[in-house]
Design a protein around this nucleic acid. Structure first.
Length: 876
RNA sequence: GGGCGCGUAGCUCAGCGGGAGAGCGCUUGACUCACAUUCAAGAGGUCGCAGGUUCGAACCCUGCCGUGCCCA
């Protein structure tokens, strides 16, 4: 069997994914086993994979594969989201190229176009998830607009309505003039912007002077219905109750007192525009002020704006400022930075605007969601996100759920044009139940996309039907998602799940950070700094991308994308590939018979003991969601211990220079196969590829049982001895490198120790020293340094490297003095510690003993070094 | 204004109560029969600053400075 020396992931990955999917290894049905279930955060159906998806789904896949191997009935349920605004915008853009608008087509035709668009691009992202290796059950793939999910959405809306938790009202909402729809409060991004604060004089009606107000939005003054001051503001006490004349409009409006006003800001007097500012809206309600809308859907001044009608909001601002200036009413302009709301989809400045919308009453729904987090029914990992979640729910405001779009779940409410009756209904309404009129029409709006994704954990399992799936898999086990959508999605799933299932939708929430570019900036289209995971998979393989995304990172923290780190992961895959290649090259005619304990060498016992430790560490790290630490553990074990030490130590045996080749093969087999199984959740493809070439049972590594530690592999003695041996070997290498002995040149090394155990260990493993340090050891109980030798100390053993001609005695002395200085510092530190009565009295005995042992060994090292330095002084 | 995170080797980041770690980069040596996507060795850090708790602090507490994010 010959394998190429460079692993090429492309074909391998395609091949195995196809094999897994076609054999139905991802699919599962309820049975007797314990369930483990994750619902995938549904990506935008017509979107494409970005690094955030790659990270999110890698984490989910790791957990899924791990639990599946542990024997849980593991379901990872995939699906996509219809993404109302985003998808509709794309199709509209498409139409624009044809010179059409959605209104030209009409609602029905337009929706046909969107569905066609969905058909065209709907598979792209799920195909991309496949290349990542996602082991989700595609047979259960769902879409937020499919029949079942739509059924659930309708049911939820109507039940909430019947319960009085959904209402329709005039309210100030966030209008996006570009997307032409209302958006919810959390869909508004507040960005600090430079702007101007205009100081405008409003003349008093009685002609006794002016009141100067400060505003950043002069164009909305046309909709002003009051001027407000703080009730305790001495400056304005006399003005309260009077009227001022609204300039340009010449309408008298009252001066009112309200606590909302900030005395320190501007002049302490503010104009009140209830129809165009959320705070002013509240003030307006308190004081029963009229609400005058002056801007239309396009953020263009409307008929209430008089002569400014038809001007866009920014043109209007310019014109109004100019006119005020001409009238002598503009006092001054001041540069300020202030927070401006932007649409999170299209970045347009949001226009707060009065309109009639549907809302979900949040207080009653929020309470159980708060309770669930406080009582631990749902747990956030890392824990600190609980606070962020709670804080949001404590300050919850009603949720505006209607969107002025066509693509989405249409609001299941009809209105009678005759009697005005509002008719919520599961079925299409043909006539008014009150007045029997057939002049009825359905609400034109659709629901916020998050309304349907809030139901995802149960709508995908069959709700409102009480299906077997729902009974078995709900509540799901863990939700994995980015910290940026805790409010949008996590919180909403929680309160919807609690309301309709009476149980949390998931027991744990694993929150991860964002993938940033190398400079630490958010990846974005406008910056063009995004790294395309699809390209990365093509060039480096999905395994490498996955490994890179999961290492060097802690839960909840952001991650910078460095190509160097990607190369590192690729190199690791290649390392594993080549180690396996080595093993396979030596497996000609090998069939595992099981390990015979009595034939194991020190190295065998050591690597098996280490394997045991790795199994237990990786397992517990995975259980704690410390995926990065688990991956690091495997990386170090495979590269440092298995490849650099163990594999090297098997060579003399495998090449027939020493007996025990069969045992070496048995151990290599166990260690490699087990390691592959541990690594499989992280790097599913390469582990499958190698595993399949090793003797194995079962059809796939993904269904192999998760490795368990074995009592008979425990061997602290071997671990200790091996580490002594390794120390000695490293010291010899170090000494040789010190004087640049070429690796090819073999030489003698003298190891001095009076310890019988060590003597035996070194003699028995002299071959290992020969193999790994290119030196023939001679172990003696005592000896003075030969003339012209390098000296070292390791594991209590004095190491002499006789290299007469190569040594610069002066340099050697210098080096040894440097060593000695370090040792003396350690001795000093340890003595101080051990002479501290507090330490002796309060520190655990174990720690004290360890420190004592260290001190002894440092003393010994000091002795050797001093002796040697003394001798060198004579020689010089 | 409030909340949260981060500040550890040149860079990116682990570690979070008992001897400062990794990867990359750098220096030196080696194409050694699994791998140069490699091997061996090395240099490099008063763990942001100042206090406190403790026998013992990079790690816990307080304050400050710097930086990033979220909310208002």
């Amino acid at each position: 069997m010959t394998l190429p020396s460079v692993y090429s992931p492309r074909e391998v990955e395609r091949k195995w994914y196809k094999y897994w999917e076609e054999n139905g290894f991802f699919h599962t049905e309820p049975d007797q086993r314990k369930p483990f279930c994750i619902v995938m955060p549904p990506p935008n159906v017509t979107g494409q994979l970005h690094m955030g998806h790659a990270l999110d789904n890698t984490l989910q896949d790791i957990l899924t594969r791990y639990k599946r191997m542990q024997g849980f009935n593991t379901l990872w349920l995939p699906g996509t989201d219809h993404a109302g605004i985003a998808t509709q915008a794309k199709v509209e853009e498409e139409l624009r190229k044809e010179g059409l608008t959605k209104d030209d087509l009409g609602r029905e035709k337009f929706l046909e176009r969107v569905w066609a668009w969905k058909e065209k691009y709907g598979n792209r992202i799920t195909e991309q998830l496949r290349t990542l290796g996602a082991s989700c059950d595609w047979q259960r793939e769902r879409f937020t607009l499919d029949e079942g999910c739509s059924e659930a959405v309708k049911e939820v809306f109507l039940r909430l309505y019947e319960k009085g938790l959904i209402y329709r009202d005039y309210y100030i909402t966030n209008w996006c003039p570009h997307c032409k729809t209302t958006i919810s409060d959390i869909e508004v991004e507040h960005i600090e912007k430079d702007g101007k604060l205009y100081y405008i004089k409003y003349p008093l009606e009685d002609g006794s002077g002016y009141l100067t107000v400060a505003t950043t939005r002069p164009e909305t003054m046309l909709g002003d219905t009051a001027v407000a001051v703080h009730p305790e503001d001495e400056r304005y006490r006399g003005f309260i109750g009077k009227n001022v004349i609204l300039p340009l409009v010449n309408r008298p409006i009252p001066v009112i007192a309200d606590e909302y006003v900030d005395k320190e800001f501007g002049t302490g007097a503010v104009k009140i525009t209830p129809a165009h500012d959320p705070n002013d809206f509240e003030v307006g309600l308190r004081h029963k002020l009229p609400q005058v809308v002056v801007l239309d859907d396009n953020a263009v001044m409307n008929e209430n704006a008089g002569k400014y009608r038809g001007l866009d909001r920014y043109e209007a601002r310019k014109k109004i400022v100019e006119d005020l200036k001409n009238l002598g009413l503009l006092v001054k302009e001041e540069e300020i930075t202030h927070s401006v709301g932007h649409c999170y989809r299209c970045d347009t400045v949001i226009e707060p605007r009065l309109s009639k919308q549907w809302f979900v009453k949040m207080k009653p729904l929020a309470e159980p969601a708060i309770e669930a987090a406080l009582t631990g029914k749902v747990k956030f990992v890392p824990e600190r996100f609980t606070k962020i979640y709670l804080n949001w729910l404590y300050n919850i405001r009603d949720w505006c759920i209607s969107r002025q779009l066509w693509w989405g779940h249409r609001i299941p409410v009809w209105y009678c044009d005759e009697c005005g009756e509002v008719i919520p209904s599961r079925e299409e309404v043909k006539s008014c139940p009150e007045c029997q009129s057939t002049r009825v029409h359905q609400d034109p709006d659709v629901l916020d996309t998050w309304f349907s994704s809030a139901l995802w954990p149960f709508s995908t399992l069959g709700w409102p039907q009480n299906t077997e799936d729902l009974k078995y898999y709900y509540p799901t086990s863990v939700l994995v998602t980015g910290r940026d959508i805790i409010f949008f999605w996590v919180a909403r799933m929680l309160f919807m799940g609690l309301e309709f299932m009476k149980e949390v939708p998931f027991k744990e929430v694993l929150i991860h950070g964002l993938v940033l570019d190398a400079q630490g900036r958010k990846m974005s289209k406008s910056l063009g700094n995004g790294v395309d995971p699809v390209e990365v998979i093509e060039s480096h393989g999905a395994d490498s991308l996955r490994f890179m995304l999961v290492t060097g990172n802690t839960p909840g923290n952001d991650l910078r994308f460095h190509f160097e780190r990607l190369d590192g992961a690729r190199n690791f895959a290649n390392k594993l590939w080549n180690a396996s290649r080595f093993v396979l090259m030596n497996f000609e005619g090998f069939a595992p018979q099981g390990i015979k304990q009595e034939e194991l060498t020190l190295a065998d016992r050591w690597i098996l003991a280490r394997l045991n430790a790795v199994i237990s560490k990786v397992t517990s790290y995975l259980d704690e969601y410390e995926l990065g630490e688990a991956a690091r553990e495997l990386y170090e074990f495979i590269w440092d211990e298995f490849c650099d030490w163990y594999v090297e130590l098997t060579k003399p045996r495998l090449y027939g220079k020493m007996p025990g080749g069969d045992t070496a093969r048995e151990v290599l087999y166990v260690v490699l196969k087990t390691t592959l199984e541990l690594l499989h959740p992280f790097m599913p493809f390469i582990t499958e590829e190698i595993w399949q070439r090793l003797p194995h049972e079962g059809k796939t590594i993904m269904l192999a049982p998760w490795p368990k530690g074995r009592g008979d592999y425990e061997d602290p003695e071997a671990v200790k001895q091996m580490s002594s041996l390794m120390e000695v070997i490293r010291e010899i290498r170090r000494l040789r490198a010190e004087v640049n002995v070429p690796p090819g040149k073999r030489g003698e090394v003298i190891l001095v120790t009076a310890d019988q155990e060590l003597t035996r260990l070194l003699n028995e493993n002299a071959w290992a020293i020969a193999a790994l340090a290119q030196s023939e050891p001679r172990v003696v109980p005592e000896m003075e340094a030969p003339e012209g030798a390098l000296t070292g100390v390791a594991a209590g053993v004095t190491v002499y490297l006789p290299l007469k001609d190569l040594i610069d005695l002066e340099k050697e002395k210098e080096r040894l003095n440097k060593e000695l200085k370090k040792v003396l510092a350690e001795i000093e530190r340890l003595n101080q510690k051990l002479n501290n009565p507090g330490f002796l009295a309060k520190a655990p005995a174990e720690v004290v003993n360890k420190e004592r042992e260290k001190l002894t060994s440092f003393y010994r090292e000091k002795e050797i070094l001093e002796q040697r330095i003394g001798m060198l002084s004579h020689e010089l």
